Structure formats: structure tokens, C-alpha cells
Amino acid sequence: MIHPIIFLDFFRKLLAPLHIGEAAADAIAYTWLIIIVAVVVSLLATRAVREVPQGLQNLMEIIIDGIENMIAESMGPKGRAFFPLIATLALFILVSNLIGLIPGFFPPTANINTTAACAVVVFCATHIVGIKEHGTHYVKHFMGPIIWLAPLMFFIEVIGHLSRVLSLSLRLFGNMQGHELVLMIFFTLGVKYFMPLAPLPMMLMGILVSFIQAFVFMLLAMIYIQGSLEEAH
């Protein structure tokens, strides 16, 4: 296994000409690491597909079926078309959150650039789907129920939709960055003053937070896309 310091140094040198800073370089490096791990796991899980799943294939099928059932229940039959997007976001965010629990590793979701990128993807997908589904009539989603209030409602709705990017990105970033700081403080205190297992409760809490934040992001993405699919009233 490649030591995280060697991995980071390699990417920092690779990205040095871009002058993006160490924090952004670290986020990009770990993002690529997660992508590589996801590809490898996918290849291993589908290398020998069996009718009766075993091992890694069984685990991946449970995860995929769970996400697919959640999408179908929340979004209806039309929601299955968005399974690749929502499942990819959910798994990427979950692994990004969990990787921060490994000593020496940094979660990409603790960087605002990563969470903002995920939020922008959801924002663009929402409105692309809305325009594709309703055409020019999609503008009715921004006009409100009363025609004479349409100019005011349009302004308010635009602000509301733009604020979704801030909401999605800052919520995930704030929780993961805060957890990283707290875990670092407890780990330092545990090593210096207490027994080495002192940070363990915070790490268990970190696992819970990682799953919750991935679930919340996935749920909000489904709600936003489902809203663009509905007819305006």
C-alpha cells in the first residue's frame, strides 16, 4: 500500500504548475485515489458474476439494490433513469467521508471545492432534467400560483434555487471539516494525555456522521430532481 505522504507528494508535484495550493491539491489527489479504488472494486465485483452472489459481488448488490429501491420509492418509476447519477454521488461522498477516518488520510469532502462541485452537478442536472421534461413550460416552476405575483415569485424562486448550491456544499463541508478538527484534537489529546483508545468514540461517531451526510446529500438530490419532474401548478 502506498503511504499517503508519498501519494500526496507525487500529486503536489504533478499539480504544482497549476498553482492551486496544497489544500486543493490534496483534495484532488484523494479524489483520484477514491476514483481508482471505485474502479478496482467495480472490476473485482463484476469479474465473475454469479447467479448466486458471493463475497464482494454480494456486498455490492446489497448496496446497489438499497440505493435503487430508495430512488424508486422517493421518485417513482421515472427516478430509475437517474440511478447512475445519484448512486455515484452517494458512493463517492460516502467513501470520501470514510477515508478521513484512516490516520494520515484527508477526506475530499472536507474541502469546499469538492462539495461545491458535487452541488453544482446536482444543480445543473436538476434544471437540465426540468427543461428536457417540460421544455419552455419549465419556467412555470419559477412563476408561483398567482399570475400578478409572477415577477416577484420569479426573483424569489431563482434565489431559492441558487441557494441550494450553497446549502448542499456548505452543509457537507461544514460537517466533515468540523469532524476532522474534533477528531484531530481528540486524537492528539488521547495520544498525549490519555490512553490510545480515547479517540475511538469520536471515530465511531465519525462513521455515523459519514453515512448520515452521504444519505442527506443523496436524499436532497432526489428531492430536487423529482421537483423538476413534476408539473408546475
Rank of each mutant, 00 (worst) to 15 (best):
A81L: 08
A198D: 03
I2V: 15
F187V: 06
L85C: 05
L94M: 10
K13P: 05
R12H: 15
P84G: 05
I35A: 13
P4D: 06
G66M: 03
P145S: 05
L181Y: 15
H141Q: 04
L181N: 11
Q226W: 09
H137L: 14
E22F: 14
L85P: 02
T136F: 11
K132E: 06
M222C: 02
A125D: 00
K78H: 09
G55D: 11
K192T: 13
A29F: 04
T188P: 02
V165D: 01
V139N: 08
G130R: 00
I223C: 07
G206D: 06
M195P: 08
A214T: 02
A117P: 06
I223M: 08
P107A: 00
I71K: 04
I131L: 07
A110V: 00
L149I: 07
F215K: 08
I20M: 12
V158I: 14
A29K: 02
I63Q: 04
G174C: 03
I67M: 07
K192W: 15
G190R: 10
W32A: 14
E180Y: 09
L229I: 03
C118Q: 05
L189V: 05
A38Q: 13
T136H: 12
L43D: 03
I63F: 02
R47A: 03
Y30L: 07
P108E: 00
V120R: 04
M205G: 08
A24P: 05
A45W: 07
M202L: 15
I34T: 03
Q57E: 09
L166Q: 09
V37Q: 10
E133K: 04
E231H: 08
A221K: 01
D26F: 12
G100C: 00
N58Q: 15
S228N: 04
A87Q: 07
A125C: 00
P103R: 05
L197P: 02
I102N: 04
F10P: 06
A150G: 08
G79E: 01
I156K: 08
A198M: 12
K13T: 13
M153I: 13
I147W: 12
V41W: 13
P4A: 05
F154L: 11
G55P: 15
I36C: 10
G130N: 01
A232E: 04
P145F: 02
H179K: 10
E230R: 05
F211I: 03
